[in-house]
Simulated scan of single mutants.
Amino acid sequence: MKERRHFIRIVYQAPAQLSQSGAQWSATLKDISLHGILLSCPDGWQPGDDPEFQVDIVLPETDVHLTMTAELVAYDPQSLRMKIVNIDIDSISHLRRLIELNIGDDALLHRELEHLADLAEDE
Rank of each mutant, 00 (worst) to 15 (best):
K2A: 14
E3R: 14
R4Y: 03
R4M: 02
R5F: 05
R5T: 11
R5K: 15
H6S: 12
H6R: 14
I8N: 07
R9Y: 00
R9H: 06
I10M: 01
Y12G: 09
Q13T: 13
Q13L: 13
A14Y: 06
P15W: 02
P15V: 12
A16N: 03
Q17K: 10
Q17T: 15
Q17L: 13
Q17I: 15
S19Y: 00
S21F: 03
G22A: 08
S26R: 11
S26K: 13
S26Y: 02
A27K: 00
T28I: 11
T28D: 02
L29K: 02
K30D: 07
K30E: 12
K30C: 14
D31R: 07
D31M: 07
I32E: 00
I32Y: 02
S33I: 10
L34V: 12
L34I: 08
S40G: 14
P42K: 08
P42I: 09
D43I: 13
G44Q: 10
Q46W: 00
Q46A: 15
P47D: 04
D49H: 12
D49F: 07
D50K: 09
P51Q: 03
E52H: 13
E52Q: 14
V55E: 00
V55Q: 01
V55L: 05
D56P: 00
D56Q: 14
I57K: 01
V58P: 00
V58C: 05
L59M: 09
P60Q: 04
P60K: 03
P60Y: 01
E61G: 02
T62D: 05
T62F: 08
L66N: 09
T67K: 15
T67M: 11
M68P: 01
M68T: 12
T69H: 04
T69F: 02
A70G: 11
L72N: 05
L72H: 02
A74V: 10
A74G: 07
D76F: 04
P77T: 12
Q78F: 05
Q78C: 08
S79I: 07
S79N: 08
L80E: 01
M82L: 15
I84V: 15
V85T: 15
I87W: 00
I87N: 00
D88W: 04
D88E: 08
I89W: 03
I89D: 06
S91F: 02
I92R: 04
S93D: 09
H94N: 11
H94D: 09
L95H: 03
L95R: 01
L95D: 03
R96Q: 12
R97Q: 11
L98K: 02
I99A: 01
I99L: 07
L101Q: 09
L108D: 07
L109R: 06
H110C: 09
R111M: 12
R111W: 04
L113C: 13
L113G: 04
L113W: 01
E114G: 03
E114L: 15
H115A: 09
H115I: 08
A117V: 11
D118T: 14
E121D: 05
D122Y: 06
E123I: 11
E123Q: 13
E123V: 12
